[in-house]
């Protein structure tokens, strides 16, 4: 059982609320999404493990059991080429659950015409293994869902 933490503060919503069919259609995998508070914030690691990929707009943490979680900061934010994101960790770093990885400001993302919604995806999760999805307001580091 993996407990996955909310990487950002905001409102927990379903993946189907993400305005990108790659995520809302479950193509990447099961999980949840957070409509983030529109204020500067730090994005934290959803699980303990190694940052196997770190882009300014997205990162993947893999736990010791080999399970990976993708955190994507906003939609189409790859187009920003890192502008507005500050890296607080490095690719290859080991992080504890709740440790800050990136700083950003969802209000700026939205002002730039993009959705700041953050999909949090259990990569390669088998069907029906993601449960206990949080609803409503969450703080960064609160439990977001479980991966059984």
């Amino acid at each position: 059982m993996t407990t996955v933490l909310a990487p950002v503060a905001g409102a927990a919503v379903g993946l189907e609320a993400v305005p990108d069919p790659v995520f809302s259609g479950g193509l990447v995998g099961a999980g949840a999404a957070i409509d983030p508070a529109r204020e500067p914030g730090r994005v934290v690691a959803p699980i303990a493990g190694k940052i196997v990929k770190l882009h300014p707009h997205a990162f993947v943490v893999v736990g010791d059991d080999g399970r990976g979680i993708l955190v994507h900061l906003g939609i189409d934010t790859v187009q920003l080429r890192g502008e507005g994101f500050e890296l607080l960790a490095a690719e290859g770093d080991r992080v504890s659950a709740g440790q800050p990885v990136v700083a950003w400001n969802p209000a700026e993302i939205e002002a730039g015409g993009r959705s700041p919604v953050c999909p949090v995806v259990a990569l390669d999760a088998e069907e029906g293994t993601v449960s206990a999805l949080a609803e409503g307001r969450v703080c960064a580091g609160d439990e977001l869902f479980r991966w059984g």
Partner: peptide, 10 residues
């Protein structure tokens, strides 16, 4: 077949 594997290839 692994999205984790493919994303990690970068």
């Amino acid at each position: 077949k692994s999205i984790l594997g493919v994303l990690s290839l970068d």
